[in-house]
């Protein structure tokens, strides 16, 4: 609860500072601002609860420990840049799973990130545009109240900036179409998908994008026909998605950076001492990982302690565990599995 309030308080403070005490806050966007503050509270609260689970707490602690080790820090920073590019920006691991899956995810991600980068600074009053004094048709971009980029209203840059959300919508719609196609055709998707987990997020993204584009169509080509209704409809879709952020599939956006911690943890494990199986004597994992899992399992209430051969079942490699089941079954028939 404290984490949620703290995060919400920090964002509220940044809104006050960035909008110059709300003087640049767009009154038409206040509903979005409050929905974002609620989402921030929910996300921070759920994240803090998630970090309290024993395996998550262990990975969080170990991930930072191995990342910040002075001897490995430079290498880790270089690896961090590489991983941010290939894992987060390019989604290489999802493209490897399937081209259509990779394309769908990348398009949705790119469109959403673009929309977020445009929408939130506008909603918080961090960015606003003003006509340049004495220069007809020229606009100045103010960031946190400071004048920055200026451009003419008819320039290519103006077209790109003012229609940024339209480009984002088109990317998201293309991604949603690909994802929906897979969900409606593939037998694995048919067996495993759930409405709330898999269809609802796609429907939300689609409705946000389409209603946003309808606003553009209304004011560009239909002289503002039904604009007020459309703007309320669009706000409803966006606010629903914001309120749902902490609870549904979208929360994976905030969990996903843990993948970086896991990667650095594995790197450190590979360079460190290896655990050898108590049965076959072969190395099978990093000793750090095995010791950490023993601690996590104890905290979770599992009692895999052994009386002989090793102190804990975690010290037997997965391959030997598979053989042991057959041997145990064989014992019931009066001998080892190989003797039956």
């Amino acid at each position: 609860m404290g984490c949620g309030l703290l995060a919400t308080g920090i964002l509220g403070g940044l809104i006050l500072v960035g909008s110059r005490r709300l003087s640049h806050l767009d009154a038409a966007l206040v509903a979005y601002t409050f929905a974002t503050l609620f989402a921030t509270f929910g996300i921070a609260y759920r994240y803090a609860m998630w970090l309290q689970r024993p395996p998550t707490a262990m990975l969080w602690r170990r991930g930072w420990q191995v990342f910040l080790r002075p001897r490995a820090l430079l290498r880790n920073l270089a690896l961090l840049g590489h991983r941010l590019l290939v894992v987060f920006a390019l989604n290489r691991f999802i493209w490897r799973r399937h081209v259509a899956r990779g394309a769908a995810h990348w398009l949705i991600m790119a469109g959403t990130v673009l929309a977020v980068l445009i929408t939130f600074p506008l909603v918080f009053g961090w960015i606003h545009f003003e006509a340049a004094a004495g220069e007809h048709g020229r606009y100045v971009t103010y960031v946190f109240g400071f004048p920055t980029l200026a451009f003419h209203v008819d320039s290519l840059l103006a077209g790109l900036v003012f229609h940024g959300l339209s480009w984002a919508s088109l990317l998201v719609i293309a991604g949603v179409m690909l994802a929906m196609r897979r969900r409606m055709r593939d037998r694995d998707a048919a067996a495993l998908q759930r409405f709330g987990e898999d269809f609802l997020p796609l429907m939300l993204l689609f409705s946000i994008s389409v209603t946003g584009l309808m606003l553009v169509v209304s004011y560009e080509w239909m002289r503002g026909y039904a604009y007020e209704f459309l703007s309320i409809l669009h706000a409803v879709t966006v606010i629903t998605a914001l309120l749902w952020l902490p609870f549904g599939k979208f929360f994976h956006i905030f969990q996903r950076p843990a993948q970086l911690g896991a990667a650095f943890y594995k790197d450190a494990g590979e360079r460190g001492e290896q655990a050898r199986c108590a049965r076959c004597g072969e190395p099978y994992a990093s000793l750090m990982h095995v010791e950490d899992l023993i601690e996590v399992e104890r905290k979770l209430g599992y009692r895999y302690e052994l009386a002989q051969r090793a102190d804990h079942y975690q010290r037997v490699c997965p391959r030997c565990r598979r053989s042991l089941l057959a041997l145990a079954q064989g014992r019931c028939f009066g001998g080892g599995a190989e003797e039956v």
Binding site: P55, L59, R97, K249, H252, Q255, R256, A258, Q259, G261, A262, A263, Y265, K266, A285, H289, V290, L293, V296, E297, Y304, Y313, Q314, C317, P318, R319, C320, R321, R322, L325
Partner: peptide, 18 residues
């Protein structure tokens, strides 16, 4: 697929080695 972070905890912890 949206959640797995490839930490391998499950691979090492499964008592049946699955």
């Amino acid at each position: 697929k949206a959640r797995c972070i490839a930490c391998s905890n499950c691979v090492l912890a499964c008592p049946f080695g699955v």
